[in-house]
Design a protein around this nucleic acid. Sequence first.
DNA 1: CGGAGGCTTGACGGCTGTCAAGGCTAGTGG
DNA 2: CCACTAGCCTTGACAGCCGTCAAGCCTCCG
Lengths: 244, 244
Amino acid sequence: MNVTVPIKIEPLKVACSSCNLRELCLPVGLNSNDLDQLDELVATRRHVVRGDTLFRSGDVFQSIYAVRTGFFKTCVSSEDGRDQVTGFQMAGELLGLDGISTDRHSCDAVALEDSQVCVIPFEQLEELSREFTDLQRQFHKIMSREIVRDHGVMLLLGSMRAEERLAAFLLNLTQRLQARGFSAAALVLRMTREEIGSYLGLKLETVSRTFSKFQEEGLLEVKQRHLRILDQAGLQKLVNNTNC
Amino acid sequence: MNVTVPIKIEPLKVACSSCNLRELCLPVGLNSNDLDQLDELVATRRHVVRGDTLFRSGDVFQSIYAVRTGFFKTCVSSEDGRDQVTGFQMAGELLGLDGISTDRHSCDAVALEDSQVCVIPFEQLEELSREFTDLQRQFHKIMSREIVRDHGVMLLLGSMRAEERLAAFLLNLTQRLQARGFSAAALVLRMTREEIGSYLGLKLETVSRTFSKFQEEGLLEVKQRHLRILDQAGLQKLVNNTNC
DNA sequence: CGGAGGCTTGACGGCTGTCAAGGCTAGTGG
DNA sequence: CCACTAGCCTTGACAGCCGTCAAGCCTCCG
């Protein structure tokens, strides 16, 4: 292993305009002219090996990142060492929007498997979005979507019980995987029980117990990180019905 | 009472450039030229009486709003009627950013007292921000700040106990009031125990009990919605120390 | 093959939710 | 001006969900 080059940067091989994620990522809805411009902007890619951070809280903010392959978590920490996973990001999703506010990142982004991200220099993105209305609009939509997503997580954390939280989490995960062409039924979790628990405001034991309960009830098949959804409607019902 | 005009709209009397909130609101950091442009943009004001909504989930999104006077809450609801307060907004803070993502609002904004908001037509704001770099940057910072704030709420909801949540909430509130020139020691809550509870992921009884506990411990003086902070450091300690 | 990290499961306790009763306050109408 | 009422708040008793602690198992990888 070559430890002298911890961060591997390479010229981009796949342009946005021909990227198979373009319908999920920043380029959504852009015309071919805008896309050509975006290709110019997104010139580098960065590899992050499993366990490494893409950025840390406190790092100077310069770029946002689009996940090209792999899987990330973002987490915030309070001064006293409390830790909260704020999201899991998969291919086509953006990382680093938190950094715009103070020019420094306010959370850590950690790769949960070997990953590649497209580096989008923020100042140039702003410049380009002053020129291209559609790009501007798309970027604003993505930021707004993140806000809406966060509100959904607040709803989950503020008003759901453990089973409901885990069911909502699994449905969200499978839905996003499905949008990327994966099966909605079988999946491999990239994160530990503890990370799921942190995201859902639960302890890892509760996550584990709830998985077991779902299995007993025939909703899931659980084998460590390998899951099979047996009864999607049953999970959905858990999320929708408060109690009955 | 004239019920034929439920929404009162009037020409803006105070321009952004001379608004006493300009250091807290969208105009932060703009030069006088940008400010003049912003004055053109923000041409109307809207009154919302206590209990009325500024917008509702599902409403078509056209404008964002800056609170000029008064106090709002925003809340999301799930299909099954679950309800979650996602924030409280006071003078100088923006409302409606959630609507950008789908061109429809995804939460309700309710006035908790008679309020006025400045109406900022979003399409025109985007247009203007294509022209003025500082305005663009400022708007992006505000959206990003909302994301960072949401992450803080997730941390609170995901990892804090009732006392810690309420202490954090009170400190946040007093800090924002102080930034607006109010005393950091005495305040009047604009929201009910139930709304506080919803925001903090607690039941109203727990909020009430925790208030009483803080009072017994000499941290607060509580008389219904009238609060006096007696020991700010003590509250801060509650937030910082997990247990001891 | 051995160890470390991750996962499962049990026992138990405490925090917070639930249900209920009663008090307070502000706003309304007589 | 004052009584009334509705909404809000407080407090108690009790229960249950989930956290804590502990022990042991599994799996992956060196």
